[in-house]
Computed example of a mutant assay.
Amino acid sequence: MNDIAVRAQQLLEENQYLTLATADASGRPWSSTVWYAAWQRSRSEQWLAVEFIWLSRPEALHSRNILHRPEVGISIFNSAQPAGTGDGLQFAARAELVPSALLDEAAEAFSRASLAAGGGAWTRAQVEEPALPRLYRARTESAYLLGNGNRVELPLA
């Protein structure tokens, strides 16, 4: 069993918000906090296989930035942890609107997570153009677990 991958899974389940770092076409950075669903098509104790999905309006600054620069940074931390004791996750990813071919599956995964967190149900019709907001995803390219002053790379599927 890979304790690092197991801890990463726990952090994904324990937290509901991520910080999304984007940049505009000229490189000017912007960060946004979004409620996310961890879209895990397979679970393993040996590696992490996750995409992140969230709702956003296309005119939001981070959504406009994603159009020009799909490369994003993601951080997930519980900010209530005492100083010097916390652990969290960091990701490099590529973000985009969820492609039409995946929209049913993504909307279902987002809806399940939303209902489990006390939110409402979501359907394809509620997140597909021309509806607002729209469903976005980030596909992870690298992942790190941070804790005890260490940064450990997580194996990805």
Results as ranks from 00 to 15, higher is better:
2 N>K: 02
2 N>A: 03
4 I>H: 14
5 A>C: 13
8 A>S: 10
9 Q>M: 04
13 E>S: 10
13 E>A: 15
17 Y>E: 13
18 L>K: 05
18 L>P: 03
20 L>Q: 11
21 A>G: 15
22 T>G: 04
24 D>A: 13
27 G>V: 11
29 P>N: 15
30 W>Y: 08
35 W>Y: 14
37 A>L: 11
37 A>V: 09
37 A>N: 12
41 R>K: 14
44 S>K: 14
47 W>R: 13
48 L>D: 03
49 A>N: 15
49 A>K: 13
51 E>T: 11
51 E>I: 10
52 F>P: 01
52 F>M: 08
55 L>K: 02
55 L>N: 02
55 L>M: 08
59 E>F: 05
64 R>L: 00
64 R>K: 08
67 L>S: 07
69 R>I: 08
70 P>L: 02
71 E>G: 13
73 G>W: 12
74 I>R: 08
75 S>M: 13
86 G>N: 14
87 D>A: 09
89 L>I: 09
89 L>F: 05
92 A>H: 02
94 R>I: 05
94 R>L: 05
98 V>E: 06
99 P>V: 01
100 S>F: 01
103 L>M: 13
103 L>K: 07
104 D>G: 13
106 A>I: 02
110 F>S: 06
110 F>Y: 15
115 L>V: 15
118 G>Q: 04
120 G>V: 08
120 G>K: 09
122 W>G: 00
126 Q>N: 07
132 L>W: 01
134 R>A: 05
136 Y>A: 06
137 R>Q: 12
137 R>N: 06
138 A>W: 03
139 R>T: 12
143 A>N: 03
143 A>E: 01
145 L>E: 01
148 N>W: 09
150 N>T: 12
151 R>C: 10
151 R>H: 07
